[in-house]
Design a protein around this nucleic acid. Sequence first.
DNA 1: TATTGTACGGTTGTCTGATAACCTTATATG
DNA 2: CATATAAGGTTATCAGACAACCGTACAATA
Lengths: 238, 238
Amino acid sequence: MVMDFSQIRRNEHLPARIASQIGREISDGRIAPGEKLPTEHILAKTFGVSRSVVREAIAQLRNEGLVETRQGVGAFATDFEHRQSIRIEQGNLADHASFQSLFQLRLPLEIEAAGLAAVNHTAEDLVKLDEALEQMTGGEKWTEKGVLADLAFHRQIAASTHNEYFLLFLGFIAERIHLAINTAREAAVLTEIVEVTIAEHVAIRDALASRDPIRAREAMRHHLHGAASRLDLQLKVY
Amino acid sequence: MVMDFSQIRRNEHLPARIASQIGREISDGRIAPGEKLPTEHILAKTFGVSRSVVREAIAQLRNEGLVETRQGVGAFATDFEHRQSIRIEQGNLADHASFQSLFQLRLPLEIEAAGLAAVNHTAEDLVKLDEALEQMTGGEKWTEKGVLADLAFHRQIAASTHNEYFLLFLGFIAERIHLAINTAREAAVLTEIVEVTIAEHVAIRDALASRDPIRAREAMRHHLHGAASRLDLQLKVY
DNA sequence: TATTGTACGGTTGTCTGATAACCTTATATG
DNA sequence: CATATAAGGTTATCAGACAACCGTACAATA
């Protein structure tokens, strides 16, 4: 029996495919920055799709900051310096060096966040922090739920800074890191040293509660360096 | 004659506005994660625009990872675990508090970057750094070109860490900040104290060149706090 | 009863064609 | 020469249609 997979594989979002194709033209420099793209009509003809699809593709590129469109003029390739959003492909973090780099970035942010949270947190913040801590210490020690509680703990610290951007960036970064860890199945390693981890979290919490930014920063630094060494990361430090 | 302002005002880029409006519904939790959005037809009716515009808006949200669409079923708000990107609406930074928050976030990143750059930079990095510095000190002191050189200087420091994420995040943040400053026309204030700023930059450069991370961090911290006070920001510090 | 097949309504995906808004360029006009 | 106007091209938006696909309800079958 012969199956025709080329027919079945026809799917996977037409505009996205065309967008990445045009995007590659730009990234590879075949369309120089500032240069005008072909008109929508021409692109539609070239790819053999309708103008709607081309428009959606271009809209996506514009959203990523790769092109700018001017009504009545055309679409132009921009250079990649001013894009409107940050994006991390999950695949990138499979690489150990890349993962380590992201962790290195997280370090100063978490430390600073701990310091700010120590100063800015409210009573409600502390309650939520304790709830997350509760879930970590509770019965089933390091299940999926425990990992989520760990995430929630750090997220709550970011929220306790009352700085929207710390929450936005740290939430994003921590999420990527935890996801990368999970897919790498390194969580197994963590099971054994869970007591240590919890103790470090408690130390952070206590420093926060006593509104001591210096101690909070130090506790967070200690925790992250511990976590890093457990993950076999070699972070620069001085 | 009655005008319906609840409908979208249509002076510029309709889909982007609708996207951010729907996006806010999701971010603020009025549409719960996993919940289904109204159909495109209904959304089109609600906003008083055509389905094409709604589709482009949803495409944008999907690109940002806030919604997922399934053909024949509908569009769903994703739980923010798989949000693939960070985005900052430029309008948000018009608010002084928000601008200050972003600057506060930038602080620890720049400082850490300075420390890492002091350790990791290569000879070429230093050359590029000096080129940026050259453009700042050159003839026309604080024109648009000078501002760009300032940006390039900080960008080069981020690059000198040889950590892709520092470059990605700091480049992004610094860009937003400089844009916000420019649109607020606060650049005029900077004109007078340009000598101070340049001196601070030189101090950073020298610390970097001598591969002294502690001094580099301190120089960067001093510079940013100086810049902050010039911008009338009140940053938390301890 | 339990499983499978099928028809149906609803939703997103794509196509087509038209009109509006806008920009650039060329031409006419004084 | 400078300015106004017309023309043509391009993107933005609109409207309506059909295709592809999904979930469900219900009938058919074993």
